[in-house]
Design a protein around this nucleic acid. Structure first.
Lengths: 253, 253
DNA sequence: CGAGAGCTTGAGGCATCTCAACGGTTGTGG
DNA sequence: CCACAACCGTTGAGATGCCTCAAGCTCTCG
């Protein structure tokens, strides 16, 4: 039961699980597999569709356009679930791959349903995590739509840092980051070339330095102001007042 | 029970509801309110957070950046739910407003929980709709990140047309569209000025015409090819094979 | 030792933005 | 009923942020 640490760590800021709940999680999600770096992930590996829960390492989802352009939709780190929406819906054009060597749990629609059914508190935590995920997508949208290149990079790095800190993978003044410049560029809607120049600007401005697989945040406040960064959409403290979805003891007319 | 038609129409492509289920829907979601055009919607109207289900009319969610720029996140038409993720999560910076006069249902976290609990098939349909919604956000992301202005407009219009058709609000060769050019521009990450020129190009190319509150699709295939439009992410036919979330009769180890 | 990938820099081009202006429509208040 | 404000749609001219093309260097891997 030493696996599934990442998901529990992430959801723990929402609620702690007891041993029965941990058992359910382990039974349903506990099939970790080792993947090499730069390996494609198949959302249709079996007859049914499946999603991936990241236990360790980095992965991402992306789409290739007809003209060959690539748009990275999201990066998955420990505790993240990739392909959740593909689980619900046939959608052949969204692809996924690992960045680094990674340990992933393959989730099926059935295992998901079982968890939602039998462990209401986990279900609520997963929905909370889904809402957070959607908040990130909104922010990503704004990045691409209305922020300049420097703002995008600053915002992206601050968000990534906070996400890593939420699963104890960040450092005091930076974080390990295996993402290549072409990969980040395709997430931010930029050219790798322009991203490179933007990173240089941020370095010269004394705001942040990226290199050697590490991102060093030199001036958090400066970056936050530049990016208009407001982290409430990742807020861990908020717990909904109302009964969370999935508590199935009561009957309602 | 003549209200809530829009949601049922939208979800009907996923599954049909019986009279008991319709009763639950009406009891929990059936509090329609009339709103004027251009009216702000408050996600914190009551002590608890609330979302809005669109019954009739058009609305949208957006965010204002520190520099005054606006990014429209999504447009809501009949059957759409705005602020779902805000229901889960405190997030003060996302705003919403009506475009036209509109009839909206105010949804609370509690009413949502009650539906999820007591009507599994509706819960499954709502999750399906949520997945579709997320698919749209992915496509929106790609619009902003990797498509040219003409491609964005073409893609946006085709998607909107299909969404309207899904709730029987579209026409054979176009649709009524109350969105102003500044509004669409802020959704697509463009200037209103440039959007205007882009629309002219599309008109001259014989692909589509927008004017007088109507969008006329002149060459659907041409637009689809230009935009790289693939509508599978809105596919209505797909129904997941596995047991949907929320069926709570069985117990799982 | 060669191939492939990433990082970096230079020079030129273009898609889109900014600033500016005008006419039409709608709503509003005196 | 008129005057005015606010918003929208449209067009022009100039500026610029980002892209494209091109090249060289480094590192890793087979």
């Amino acid at each position: 039961m030493h696996t599934l640490n990442a998901l529990q760590r992430k959801l723990s800021s929402h609620s702690q699980f007891d041993s029965a709940e941990r058992k359910i999680l382990a039974a349903q999600f506990g099939r970790p597999q080792v993947f090499a770096a730069r390996q494609e992930l198949d959302f249709e590996k079996y007859s049914d569709r499946n999603a991936y829960l990241v236990e360790e390492g980095w992965a991402y989802t992306y789409k290739i356009l007809p003209n060959g352009n690539r748009q990275v939709v999201e990066f998955g780190i420990a505790g993240d679930i990739l392909g959740f929406c593909e689980l619900q819906m046939r959608r052949g054009d969204l692809l996924a791959a690992t960045v680094t060597p990674a340990i992933l749990h393959e989730l099926t629609a059935g295992s998901f349903a079982a968890v939602m059914r039998s462990a209401p508190r986990i279900a609520a935590a997963l929905l909370w995590s889904g809402a957070q995920h959607q908040g990130m997508m909104v922010e990503h949208l704004i990045d691409l739509g209305r922020r300049s290149a420097t703002q995008r990079v600053a915002h992206f790095m601050l968000e990534l840092w906070q996400r890593l800190n939420m699963v104890s993978l960040g450092g005091k003044d930076g974080f390990k980051c295996p993402l290549s410049q072409p990969l980040i560029a395709d997430a931010l809607g930029l050219t790798a070339i322009h991203l490179n120049r933007t990173l240089r600007e941020l370095r010269i401005a004394g705001l942040m330095v990226m290199g050697d697989g590490f991102v060093e945040i030199r001036d958090e406040k400066g970056l936050a102001q530049l990016a208009g960064y407001d982290s409430t959409y990742l807020d861990q403290a908020f717990i909904p007042k109302a009964v969370p979805y999935g508590t199935h003891q009561a009957k309602v007319a």
